[in-house]
Design a protein around this nucleic acid. Structure first.
Lengths: 119, 119
DNA sequence: TCCATACCTGCGCAGGTGCGCAGCTATGCA
DNA sequence: TGCATAGCTGCGCACCTGCGCAGGTATGGA
């Protein structure tokens, strides 16, 4: 079958059928982009440290996260906003303290990968 | 125990002991950064598409990858160089064709996560 | 020997990102 | 009522990154 889009049909290939297999393997561009975005959320040391702390020790306040990671609180706040907008974490307000936790099971799954590692 | 570094000891905390737990949970900064870098390699749609193609259909030539992903060949080449420098992929030269494949088991494991997903 | 081709590299640009500083809002205690 | 604190936001600055274009190198066929 011809999975190669029309605008690339003129380009040379080494193994034409493997190109079709590769296109099928890649799948929908939107799907790929969604996963890339997911990985991007974990690709920053600051955010990853925050997520590891939340994932392994449970709900934590913003100030405590700032002290634990060594970041300034605006940086923590901004990182958490990004993660919250992506549906990875959620915050619960208790008085003037907001405690965050990881609510996305897929992200939690990826974080377990870091845990399991001992290389 | 006092895991809070001296330069942050003066800062206020909500739950002091949970801060120590969080610091222990985060672990070594170098370790966190290594994982962040790992995730960063998968955080670009172009690289992720390349890796998915390589992971699911086996060794592929640069030109074929370019056609399959719709990228220009310098972009593919540069992405593969980055992935090769990180030890994620390796290329084998056959005549004037170079076929790449995924050689890092950890990266392959993360790629399986994308595969399994159907949400 | 000459040419087409598969892949790689230097350079430059446009766009995005993380974070620090200063300042704001809201909550709770005295 | 007044003040200290937890958290959030606007703004601006470096810094990085992906990619396209042009050109270079190596391999194989005519």
């Amino acid at each position: 079958m011809h999975l190669v889009p029309a605008e690339r049909a003129g380009r040379r290939t080494i193994d034409g059928h493997r190109v079709c297999d590769a296109i099928a393997a890649i799948g929908e561009p939107g799907h790929v982009r969604a996963w890339a975005d997911r990985f991007a959320l974990l690709a920053d040391p600051g955010r990853l440290a925050l997520l590891l702390a939340l994932h392994r020790t449970g709900p934590l306040a913003v100030s405590d996260l700032a002290v634990a990671t060594g970041m300034r609180d605006p940086a923590v706040s901004q990182a958490l906003r990004l993660l919250r907008a992506a549906g990875v974490v959620a915050g619960e307000k208790e008085g003037r303290v907001v405690r965050y936790r990881v609510i996305d099971p897929l992200a939690a799954d990826l974080l377990k990968h870091c845990t399991a590692e001992t290389d």
